[in-house]
């Protein structure tokens, strides 16, 4: 299947991309790695009139330490995250979660910014950046703003990102030796997660437990109050609203959230 025809531009800078976004508004869409966007366009579930390709901008592809954080360019590919020594030592959760995205070919193309912007509740990276308390940096002709990951998602495939904004950077706290784990439950290796649970430093991010990725706040609160892992994990599905689909019922997803949270917390506790 092939996309509906569109016009194409490949600006040579972020500013150029922002200018085009401002000019074409909601008719335009950003193409980075294309592994969320192109499948949607091929199935004709989306048909932008203008595609702005930022996939080759070097200024968006980097991983560097900035004080207590690691700053990651939005155009950094999953494979870059997976293979990064900096992340491997300073934010191992993120490298590990990146390794579970799709398959090698997908990881060679897909970008962290694209994945976060797509806001798919079943996607792995959003839950990881939630658990990491990351900051998402958005830029538009109006300037730059920083949004905490916990305040980024607003619903199914939607976020606080305005149509003229571009995710340019993700800032992730260096967690160093803090315990972490990612539990991804699938039937097939390259499936989307039926449920996923990312844990780091006592924070818990949930994949595919509602319209948006979210934190297991009841579990986190219980842990903070000194509850055992078993007690805290039993609360992991509180405040979630999981779907029933071909792979799982809502009830089963709730069970998996509790089970995987227990396992992830246990692993993270080492």
């Amino acid at each position: 299947m092939i996309p509906v025809a569109f016009s194409y531009a490949r600006p040579d800078s972020v500013d150029g991309a922002l200018a085009l976004l401002a000019e074409h508004g909601e008719d335009a869409t950003i193409l980075a790695g294309g592994h969320s966007l192109l499948p949607v366009m091929k199935l004709r579930l989306g048909a932008p009139e203008v595609v702005i390709d930022i996939g080759r901008l070097p200024e968006l592809r980097y991983i560097r330490v900035q004080g207590d954080e690691v700053a990651i360019g939005a155009g950094t590919r999953h494979r870059d995250l997976e293979a990064s020594d900096v992340l491997g030592s300073d934010v191992p959760l993120l490298a590990a979660v990146a390794r579970t995205v799709g398959d090698p070919q997908v990881r060679h193309r897909g970008t962290i910014g694209g994945s976060l912007a797509h806001a798919d509740p079943a996607s792995d990276l959003p839950a990881a950046v939630l658990a990491l308390d990351a900051t998402i940096v958005l830029r538009s002709p109006r300037g730059e703003r920083q949004v905490p990951a916990t305040g980024f998602y607003t619903g199914m495939f939607s976020s606080v990102k305005e149509p003229d904004e571009l995710i340019v950077e993700i800032r992730v706290p260096r967690t160093g030796s803090a315990g972490w784990a990612y539990e991804k439950f699938t039937r097939r290796a390259n499936d989307w997660a039926i449920v996923g649970v990312a844990v780091v430093d006592g924070r818990v991010g949930l994949v595919n437990m509602g319209a948006s990725p979210l934190r297991a706040s009841a579990t986190e609160a219980a842990l903070a109050d000194g509850a055992s892992i078993d007690e805290a994990a039993a609360l992991a599905d509180q405040g979630t609203d999981p779907q029933t689909d071909v792979s799982a019922t809502a009830e089963y997803r709730r069970h998996l959230a509790r089970l995987l949270t227990r396992r992830a917390l246990t692993t993270a506790a080492g």
Partner: peptide, 27 residues
């Protein structure tokens, strides 16, 4: 793994390889 599934209205729910559980080497 595999099953072709229709909903009660006859809509196929497994009409792509993303949904139909064709195994890879990893399974």
């Amino acid at each position: 793994l595999e099953e072709v599934v229709y909903d009660s209205e006859g809509n196929p729910l497994t009409a792509t390889f993303a949904d139909y559980a064709f195994p890879s080497a990893a399974e």
